[in-house]
Write a protein that binds this DNA or RNA. Sequence first.
DNA 1: TCCGCGACCATAACGCTGTTATGCCATGCT
DNA 2: AGCATGGCATAACAGCGTTATGGTCGCGGA
Lengths: 203, 203
Amino acid sequence: MLSSMSSVPVPEASAVRARLLEEAARILDEEGPSALSSRRLATVTGTSTMAVYTHFGSMGAVVDAVATEGFRRLIDRVGAVELTDDPAADLLAAAVAYRENALQNPHLYAVMFGAISVRGLGGKGPDAEVAYAAFRQLVALVERAMAAGRLRPGDGKAVAAQWWSALHGYMMLELAGMDQVVRDPEHHVLWQLMENLLRSLST
Amino acid sequence: MLSSMSSVPVPEASAVRARLLEEAARILDEEGPSALSSRRLATVTGTSTMAVYTHFGSMGAVVDAVATEGFRRLIDRVGAVELTDDPAADLLAAAVAYRENALQNPHLYAVMFGAISVRGLGGKGPDAEVAYAAFRQLVALVERAMAAGRLRPGDGKAVAAQWWSALHGYMMLELAGMDQVVRDPEHHVLWQLMENLLRSLST
DNA sequence: TCCGCGACCATAACGCTGTTATGCCATGCT
DNA sequence: AGCATGGCATAACAGCGTTATGGTCGCGGA
């Protein structure tokens, strides 16, 4: 059994698999969940539906892989914000980047959190390690603000979980089209919420 | 009893429609989104798939009706909390009822906020008036706390939107199975979040 | 009373879906 | 060379949402 390790060290190394994943994410973002199907994926990648099953095993696994890819993009996007000497302001800047990423890829964002089931084929969800890496990224920002004295010292993970809950909840309401609830032209609800939370968490 | 069954003043008066809606909500809650189909709905209600289309027009409309029913149940559940002379504590009690309702009907809760929902067949979403009634219920609790001086006077809708965002975001993370992020045995993240928000909103 | 009409639904079909069985073919190991 | 195996095309199957068709039943008008 060790003989086959030479040709295929890692399944992710396949070029076909990469194109399937890329096209799946593109179709999901551009045309929504109902447009993502195995046959559609096969035609746009120039293969057949069997390619999906050799590389992923099921369409649900494709959706999971797309969700995982969404977390990777989120991590890249939030990681690209330039840190200043004000860790509290950086937390708000990260929230801005988080919101922009969600607004640009709304379907992908919804799939990441299982908010929408793509045609009822629900997988096991995104890769837990990647999703947790996105959380740890936020924890690092929080702990940095604590170390600088801008946030009251405490459990960074507990504070990050609160921050993420508030941010995620607002995004879901905004993406769900609940404009009457969430759209406040003069005083944007999200920034009031972030500032209120920040005030309670400050020293 | 002159022609009590003859006239059809409101389509909702149909008994078949009521059973379809009831069974749809039950199937969704007990077996998840992938189990809800037109044929399944027809067999369990003892009719054919055409009944779905005569009473709803499409499966998407059924999902929308189920989502609207979910908001009605939420309103009933939150409206059942007994108000005390501490409006701030009542807000927390309402959050407890909100969470219990979501945990008991997780799939229904997800459908309520899913712009695109079951099996990729996206309807127009739940009845906006009913969903907004749930929001107004929360606004009333907030304004009551403001009038009693337990919350700083301000825009009740803006504060209610923040409260709902935080609560909804935590629920979505909890229901998404992100236990590592959100599950904190000793200090439950939700109550820390609610108390932090309450502190910032207090006078 | 009878007729007709409209609401309601059972049956069957169409095109789509995810998935699987089968077989071909190229590649690499022995 | 022979063979085994991974990778994919073809075609099929069951199930999906939806629609066309036809039948049945009950009421309103003549």
